[in-house]
C-alpha cells in the first residue's frame, strides 16, 4: 500500500462566481443580482477559512465478487452494489481517498441557517461543496498523472452513500487510510465531520476508463449538480 497526501491552496481550485451561479441554477443572461454580491463575499472569506486537504492510499491485489457485487481490499469486504461495481470491476488495484474543505465553512453555513439567514447558509453550503469537489478533482488528476508511467488509467471516484453503496461502509473505508491526514471524524451514523468532506474509491488498471458524465449512472435524478451539468451540456 502506498499513500500520498496533499494540501491545496484555495486559488489552485479556480472556483469563481460564475461557477457557483451555474450550480445555483442561473442560466446565461439571467439576473443574478440577488446572489452575486454574497457569492463574492463568501468566496473571499473562503480563501481565508478553508483548510483543504486530500489523501489517497493505493491497494493492490483487490478481489471482485460478481455474485455479491463486492470488492475485497486488504481483507475487508465492501458491498459497493451494482452501479459502482460495474464501473470499477476491471481494476487491478484501487485508491481509497479522503478529501476535506476544513470545518470552518460548514460551521459558518450552520450558524447562518440557525440565525435564519437561509440564503447565506445555503451559499456557504454550495461553495463548501464546490471546494471539496474541486479539491477531489485535483487529487484525482494527481493520481491519474502518477499512473501514466505504468500505462494504467483510473475510473471516476465513487462514494459511500450514493448509487446504493451503504454509507455505513465508510467506517471500514476509514480504517484502510493510514494516519487520516485530513483529520476527518465519522459520526456513529457514518457521516463525516467536517461536513464538507468526501471519501470513496477510485479504480486503477489498464482496462478501466473514466466516464465524462457520471451523473447519468447515479440514482439522484433531481440533484443540483446533475441539473447544472445537464443545463451546460
Amino acid at each position: 500500500m502506498t499513500s500520498s497526501t496533499f494540501q491545496f491552496d484555495f486559488k489552485d481550485l479556480k472556483i469563481n462566481s460564475s461557477r457557483i451561479e451555474t450550480v445555483l441554477g442561473y442560466k446565461e443572461g439571467e439576473d443574478r443580482e440577488l446572489v452575486s454580491g454574497l457569492i463574492e463575499e463568501i468566496l473571499t472569506e473562503s480563501k481565508e477559512i478553508s483548510n483543504i486537504k486530500a489523501q489517497y492510499a493505493i491497494f493492490h491485489g483487490v478481489l471482485f465478487d460478481n455474485d455479491t457485487k463486492s470488492v475485497e481490499i486488504n481483507n475487508s469486504s465492501f458491498h459497493i452494489k451494482k452501479i459502482v461495481f460495474g464501473q470499477i470491476k476491471k481494476s487491478d488495484s484501487v485508491a481509497i481517498f479522503l478529501c476535506t474543505a476544513g470545518e470552518e465553512i460548514g460551521i459558518r453555513s450552520r450558524k447562518a441557517m440557525q440565525e435564519r439567514d437561509l440564503l447565506k447558509g445555503y451559499i456557504y453550503d454550495v461553495i463548501g461543496s464546490e471546494i471539496v469537489e474541486a479539491a477531489a478533482d485535483l487529487m484525482q488528476a494527481e493520481l491519474e498523472k502518477s499512473m501514466l508511467g505504468s500505462g494504467k488509467k483510473i475510473t471516476n471516484r465513487y462514494s459511500p452513500g450514493y448509487c446504493g453503496w451503504d454509507v455505513a461502509e465508510q467506517h471500514k473505508l476509514f480504517q484502510l487510510i493510514p494516519d487520516n491526514f485530513c483529520r476527518i471524524r465519522l459520526t456513529e451514523s457514518a457521516l463525516m465531520d467536517p461536513v464538507k468532506s468526501v471519501s470513496g474509491i477510485i479504480g486503477i488498471g489498464k482496462d478501466v476508463k473514466s466516464n465524462p458524465y457520471t451523473c447519468r449512472i447515479c440514482d439522484l435524478k433531481d440533484c443540483i449538480y446533475r441539473r447544472a451539468k445537464e443545463k451546460k451540456a
Binding site: L24, G25, Y26, L34, V35, L118, L119, Y122, I123, I224
Partner: peptide, 8 residues
C-alpha cells in the same frame, strides 16, 4: 425561480 429567490 431558483432556491435563492425562494429563500429570500
Amino acid at each position: 425561480i431558483y432556491v435563492p429567490q425562494m429563500l429570500m
